[in-house]
């Protein structure tokens, strides 16, 4: 099935600005549905959607599940443990089995970069990437865009992504989406956590968070994982907090009011202070609300109809 977005949503890197705007615009009315007493519309009634999560995730999976159910789709959750190699059944076989059960869409999160494309190339069902390795997390990027757009136009806004950009699929998706919609983008973190060649994407690099705060209109604060310390990228979480933590004191030095985003879950006291996360400039909870709306919009746009029939139906009645 193909429509304005093609068969799958694998990332934001290869979407056009118009396609991204279509998704954001479509998400707006879906926000209203979540405010109703009956939070359901019948548009995906009878569609089968599998949430195939190879990595544990509560919030993303639940957000997708709400989105699917609010569109009246039937959902199945599959929590596949570990890598496909460990499991024995290959990703290819998992894919083919799902397809043999005639599912309509797969929402997949997997630990290997490129896994979503790998699956999408091998099954006819629509594949939505809910995070593949370090590559992309497009719905997170989209909901971050929507949240910024709720407060200010994206074009011309200065957004700095702070933290472990090297290992972050959220950062990559954000970078693509923001650049395409005309934002100025920067990253900030210890150099050991910034990827080689990032400037070549059109992104500024700040080596000190104070500089980033002085420059930005929006901060997107990434979660710092304990594994990074254990793998030797940074000496300790304490040191990270001291030099890169987004604290109330640092924000007080900012020349303007910054919007604060965080993809969650937060390590309070590591990358971000509680007082910032819960403070007046934080839109972290709005991100969560927007997440359901964005995912509904994505499901809606991708579940689209048969294009041949659409052509034939163009002359048909619609009133």
């Amino acid at each position: 099935m193909s429509g304005a977005l093609g068969k799958d949503l694998l990332g934001l890197e290869h979407l056009s600005a118009d396609q991204i705007r279509l998704i954001l615009d479509t998400a707006e009315p879906f926000k209203e549905i979540s405010e109703r007493a009956i939070k359901k519309v019948p548009v995906l009634r009878g569609k089968t959607i599998v949430n195939l999560f190879f990595e544990a995730s509560t919030r993303t999976r639940i957000s997708f599940e709400f989105a699917e159910k609010r569109l009246s789709a039937d959902t199945v959750n599959v929590a596949a443990s570990g890598s496909s190699v460990v499991k024995g059944e290959t990703l290819v076989d998992t894919a083919r089995n799902l397809e043999a059960m005639r599912i309509d869409m797969v929402v997949m999160r997997h630990g290997s970069s490129g896994a979503a494309k790998f699956l999408a190339d091998r099954i006819e069902s629509t594949v939505i990437n809910a995070g593949d390795g370090k590559h992309e997390h497009p719905t997170q990027g989209l909901l971050d865009l929507l949240t910024i757009r709720d407060h200010r136009p994206i074009a011309g806004t200065k957004v700095c992504i702070v933290g472990d950009v090297l290992h972050s699929r959220v950062a990559r998706s954000n970078i693509w989406g923001l650049l395409k919609l005309g934002a100025a983008v920067a990253v900030c973190g210890p150099q050991s956590l910034l990827p080689l060649g990032i400037e070549a994407l059109g992104v500024h690099v700040f080596r000190r968070v104070e500089e980033a705060i002085a420059w930005a209109d929006v901060l997107n604060v990434l979660r710092l994982q304990l594994e990074r310390m254990q793998a030797g990228y940074i000496p300790s979480l304490r040191e990270y907090y001291r030099h890169f933590g987004v604290t109330v004191e640092r924000l007080e030095q900012a020349p303007r009011d910054l919007l604060i985003l965080h993809p969650g879950p937060m390590n309070r006291g590591v990358e971000i202070d509680s007082r910032v996360a819960d403070g007046p400039h934080s839109v972290i909870l709005n991100q969560v609300t927007n997440g359901v709306a964005v995912r509904m919009a994505v499901l809606y746009l991708l579940a689209g109809g048969n294009p041949e029939l659409a052509e034939a139906a163009k002359g048909a009645s619609d009133r």
Binding site: E13, S113, G114, D132, G133, K134, H135, E136, R169, R172, P195, L196, G197, I198, A200, L201
Partner: peptide
């Protein structure tokens, strides 16, 4: 290879 392509693809690079 560690470079712009590995950054874009989200793969760990070998410098």
């Amino acid at each position: 290879h560690e470079g712009l392509t590995s950054t874009r693809l989200g793969l760990k690079g070998i410098p």
